[in-house]
């Protein structure tokens, strides 16, 4: 197989380089000769209808799916936050955070990462006692503690209620600005993509069908006319006629 999932970060500061990536399920190509480059420190959002292959792409980048053809270069240090928090229910929160770190990681390491998402007071809790938003933050802390060069987020806010989601989105934006790691956010929420990303990609039929740079100043205002215009454009790309905005 002509793939190398463990690549070095190349000199032109691209942290992800995908060329001609194909992944088929039973002969049906979900990813079909896909090309993608993500630069160091860039926040990229990947939009698409369900079943368009965006989660498959994320799984390939995470190294979870290796039945692939094509060339894929990703940083060795990468971390994933899934839609479900996927915390080990038999480990207390802080042990979940440091799980998989080399050596015997100290509790302090976990606490620092938890503090970054405002969850240090829950370090000794069992995952079953966390609320949905807390569990998702713990999952984010677990990704951050690995100091990733690439952070992969698979619809991490999908299961959260609207208010918790807004807070979580702000938190991710803060973390990204502080850490400066590249982020690939898979989502189906156009607004979320526009709020957070430097560049929004629309996936269709197994390839990146459309690319939309977002040059709006941060923090972004959902109500701004530029924002609304971009949203209407992206919705059109996704095959949805945008409703008339109240503003």
């Amino acid at each position: 197989m002509a793939t190398d999932v463990h690549g070095e970060v190349t000199a032109d500061r691209a942290v992800v380089e995908i060329n001609g990536l194909t992944r088929s399920f039973d002969g049906r190509a979900v990813l079909d000769e896909l090309d993608l480059t993500v630069r160091s420190g860039e926040f990229v959002a990947l939009l698409g209808r369900s079943g368009c292959g965006k989660s498959t792409l994320l799984r390939v980048l995470a190294g979870l799916d290796r039945d692939i053809d094509g060339s894929v270069l990703v940083p060795r240090r990468r971390a994933v936050a899934f839609q479900a928090p996927r915390l080990m229910p038999w480990k207390r929160v802080w042990r979940n955070v440091v799980l998989g770190l080399p050596g015997r990681p100290a509790r302090e390491t976990a606490i620092r990462a938890l503090a970054e998402v405002g969850l240090e007071h829950r370090a000794d809790a069992w995952p079953k006692t966390l609320s949905g938003g807390e569990a998702q933050r713990a999952s984010l802390a677990r990704a951050l503690v690995r100091a990733p060069d690439l952070l992969l987020l698979d619809e991490p806010f999908g299961a959260l209620d609207a208010l918790t989601r807004i807070k979580a989105q702000q938190q991710v934006a803060e973390v990204w600005q502080r850490r400066g790691c590249a982020v690939l956010l898979v989502t189906h929420d156009v607004e979320e993509a526009l709020l957070l990303a430097d560049r929004v990609l629309v996936m269709q039929d197994g390839v990146i069908a459309h690319e939309q740079p977002v040059d709006l100043p941060r923090p972004r205002d959902v109500g701004a006319p530029e924002f609304t215009a971009l949203r209407a454009g992206l919705l059109a790309e996704l095959g949805v006629v945008a409703p008339q905005s109240p503003l």
Binding site: A62, G63, L64, R78, A79, V80, F82, A84, R86, M88, L99, G100, L101, P102, R142, R146
Partner: peptide, 15 residues
Amino acid sequence: QLIEAGVTLGLGRWG
């Protein structure tokens, strides 16, 4: 799903 999470956290077979 937990096994997958473990893999992305860098756990080896024994881990």
